[in-house]
Design a protein around this nucleic acid. Structure first.
Lengths: 250, 250
DNA sequence: TGGTTTTTGAAAGAAAGTGATTGATTTCTG
DNA sequence: CAGAAATCAATCACTTTCTTTCAAAAACCA
């Protein structure tokens, strides 16, 4: 695993949890303690986090925001392009599943108004969906702090009540060996189950995501499509050669 | 448990209660007295709190939170009194159900922080519960516009996964013949089911509510209590003669 | 391919965190 | 006010985590 990949994972974890233990990162990245320590030192030098005894903590204050805001706004337009295309796939009468996550949430604004039913595990999706007058179901389960997603046994059991025409999944990374990845195993289980209940699965991923726990081997998704923006080289294309890939351009 | 996590917990406790005992923190964090003492010393050095005999107290000054900003509504204060009393019934280790609704939501601020699990069907409850660091489960189901409650088949099925020590229900009205009432049948079904899964049921009702579809005949609730503020006459008391009634006064 | 640089994992001693104990101090109670 | 109970600071032994160092493995480059 490449160094910047690990760094991404660490920062993502921190964003969700405020505090991460070294032990935790070791397990997730399958690397040694030494390596993680070096990573944390580097990230601390770059002012991305603060090292603490036993791990690292997010540094709160002004220094954090500019980089994050900058990044999100830079990616936002690309996310919207992807989201808009994904939304165009939804047809009248469809029952669709929307995964929690920032890319998927952008779909809501572009969804057609006609007679669709949406099921989701994303808390933040509810308000905009209801605003559009769309029939909205939330699956139950344990509320996961900071990500506002629902996971766990309750979530899985609730999912069993539904069948979907299409599901749209967010993703943290795409890895040639592990498939689609996310840093939280519980979340991975929910994604996995939703996919299994859906006739077609679509994965929304901007091209920064091609670089954590896998929730589905690419080959396991039968009718999967990855919707992304421009890929920079052929190396990335090899990751997705077993699925349809739709590249959205400006 | 990492040091900053404990510090977070301590500060959160202080934010709620102004004063916190060492004993209390020990139980909540499952650490020794020595450790908590050290934590308190550090936090005092950082000017986050003031140590006092037996624990710590919030230092009053600039950093005060605007906790009682919204005293405006007369009804709100009565709701809060009722909610505060109801919250005081919750004990460490309890698994409780919180009904959607404006009176019940006021309970959240008064809930004890120790090791409780909350299950709810109220969308608006999630954020404040997570803010307090409480383990929070949402039942699934159809999102009902405007009330932000979850109802329907999915909600009922999700409920089946849980058992509650106590449940706290909002109510629209109390009627001598029909019992507790609510205008939406679907919501009534959810309330009914939650009550049936709970060892004890509490109904929160300010006295304006005494006069729609019943979700439970009063006699059907075995261990029910109504928590209300002052009742104005005996007529109203007759409504509740088959249950415990707790009248909260200022 | 062969040499250089970078990355990695392991090990040893240093540092920090933890829990128990002691005896002093404070608070409670009759 | 006096004895009991609770709380406190200081210390010690123990555990975990940290830093430093070094050699092996991997990646890089000509």
């Amino acid at each position: 695993m490449l160094t910047p990949e690990r760094h991404q994972i660490i920062l993502r974890l921190l964003k969700e949890k405020n505090v991460v233990k070294i032990q935790e990162i070791m397990e997730l990245t399958d690397t040694s303690e030494s390596t993680i320590r070096r990573d944390l030192s580097q990230l601390e030098d770059q002012k991305f986090l603060k090292r603490i005894h036993g791990g690292a903590s997010r540094l709160q204050g002004k220094l954090q925001e500019p980089s994050m805001v900058e990044k999100s706004s830079k990616n936002l337009q690309e996310k919207r392009m992807i989201a808009q295309y994904a939304a165009s796939l939804v047809e009248a009468g469809d029952c669709i599943y929307l995964d929690a996550g920032s890319t998927v949430i952008e779909m809501i604004g572009y969804l057609p108004l006609k007679e669709i039913v949406v099921v989701t595990n994303g808390l933040m999706h509810i308000a905009p969906l209801l605003n559009k007058g769309i029939s909205t179901y939330l699956i139950g389960g344990l509320a996961k702090p900071n990500t506002n997603a629902f996971i766990g046994r309750g979530a899985l059991a609730s999912l069993d009540l539904y069948r979907f025409d299409k599901c749209f999944m967010g993703v943290n990374g795409i890895h040639p060996q592990f498939g689609f990845t996310t840093p939280d195993q519980e979340e991975a289980l929910v994604k996995q189950k939703a996919i299994s209940l859906s006739r077609e699965a679509f994965v929304l991923a901007d091209n920064t995501k091609f670089a954590e726990i896998s929730f589905a081997k690419i080959s396991e998704i039968h009718e999967a499509s990855i919707i992304t923006n421009e890929l920079e080289d052929e190396t990335e294309k090899q990751y997705v050669n077993r699925t349809t890939i739709k590249v959205v351009t400006a």
